[in-house]
Design a protein around this nucleic acid. Structure first.
Lengths: 242, 242
DNA sequence: CGTTGTGTTGACAACAGTCAAACATGGTGG
DNA sequence: CCACCATGTTTGACTGTTGTCAACACAACG
């Protein structure tokens, strides 16, 4: 089963058969981490690998939620849209993350590939069977759901009650916490539009506020997508609204 | 084990022993719905019933998340606070709902009893054991987590991108959908302060916007906490930002 | 009947949004 | 190599929605 051309979503074959699941970076956090080699073959019955082209929206809010996905490489933007184009980014997913937990009968969000992306797809019924066969999987799913819920709470407070300055400070610190060594130099993974849609602001407000923080010597904008955090305590104080 | 006085949280004894779980209204949606009478006794080992006085905050954001709860009767307000007092209500819970899914090491929210409240409390470790013994429980937990995640997505869009008018329209329709017979007369379950903290607005804006909707003949405010929806299609259109 | 809590209304301020123009940046092709 | 264009960002002037502060209305209650 080779990659199909002519479509921006290609089927790459069953997941379990790829060998990747046992060795890929996703393993430590994903479904694969709870399945031993012996059972990996059975995984192939339920899952398929997919390659998604950059920029492609592969989950549409409101469509029947027939599948779950696991990101095996790349980054995904999750968002909701209003008819007039207003967009709220509800989160991002990367290698190892699940997509589709926030779904009833239909998907509650849309998902777009931020770059080249590969996924593992499970039908809902397949996942149900898998969960029965691999009880450890339940823990991983609940863990992931918990993590997403905690994050959602934080974002509701941010979107409902924080000022633009506080939102940007929170955002910069969130990016900072993602860094392995807690460096103070950030490489922003998105454009001003992305930041604005994530924080519930306009691109102009994002730009102005970032420059205001620079004037106040809390940060330095070395390049458009590169920012140095000069005063972490002040940023932390600002982020919590102190 | 009788109710203790002198504290606004009283221990009522083991949950399984109360007999309530097999018959209470909570049963259809709660943990109890997947446990048969034969096993109910074991439940008592892991759970305790609690009574909480009205107004009491029984979960504090940031505290060690040692327990899960199930609401067996009454209503709960879930919220996050900022140091200066800004409050964001992240949701409500009622009979049958779980509390504590949105927790890592610590609770991500505070919880307050809106009236007289009774709960079933499970230690985290107890719940882990229960999950092993009653695999059906996993489905209920995942269902609940999914439901909360879907709602969180909707609220992020509302808080990040909707205008005051759109938020109020969304809120009124949400209340409307909770009604069994889809009556058009609503009894608001909270004060203006509650609505404001739920929608990320001030009480003044809530009051003004509600009166504006009345002037436009979309609603009638018959009493402070009673509203008649006069034009559902227009409200629905407004709520989705059309 | 005052008192207290809650809701409404008004005047005003401010934060963030809108619209528009100037300014970078990066890629393309001459 | 440079001119050109497309895209994205910054900046400015202005508007508008929502927040703030304060006064007032009203009901519940002792």
């Amino acid at each position: 089963m080779s990659a199909q051309t002519g479509d921006s979503i290609s089927t790459l074959g069953p997941c379990g058969s790829c060998g990747q699941c046992l060795h890929c970076e996703a393993r430590s956090r994903s479904i694969c981490s709870v399945i031993d080699a012996e059972h990996m073959a059975r995984l192939a019955q339920y899952s398929h690998r997919l390659a998604v082209a950059a920029g492609r929206t592969f989950i549409q809010e409101g469509e029947t939620a027939s599948d779950f996905f696991i990101v095996t490489s790349g980054h995904v933007k999750l968002f909701a849209l209003m008819p007039d184009g207003r967009r709220q980014i509800t989160g991002f997913a990367q290698t190892g993350d699940f997509l589709g937990l926030a779904s009833g009968a239909t998907y509650a969000f849309s998902a777009e590939a931020l770059g080249a992306l590969s996924l593992c797809r499970f039908s809902r019924s397949g996942l149900t069977l898998l969960r029965r066969e691999f009880p450890e999987l339940e823990n991983r799913l609940m863990e992931e759901a918990s993590r997403e819920l905690v994050q959602a709470q934080k974002r509701m407070l941010l979107l409902g009650r924080k000022t633009a300055r506080e939102r940007l400070a929170s955002f910069l610190l969130e990016q900072h916490h993602l860094l392995p060594a807690r460096e103070i130099t950030l490489r922003l993974p998105m454009s001003r539009t992305g930041i604005a849609d994530y924080l519930g602001l306009t691109i102009e407000t994002v730009s102005r506020t970032l420059n205001a923080l620079q004037r106040e010597k809390l940060i330095t904008i070395t390049q458009v997508t590169q920012i140095v955090l000069l005063n972490l305590p002040a940023l932390e104080n600002l982020a919590r609204g102190g």
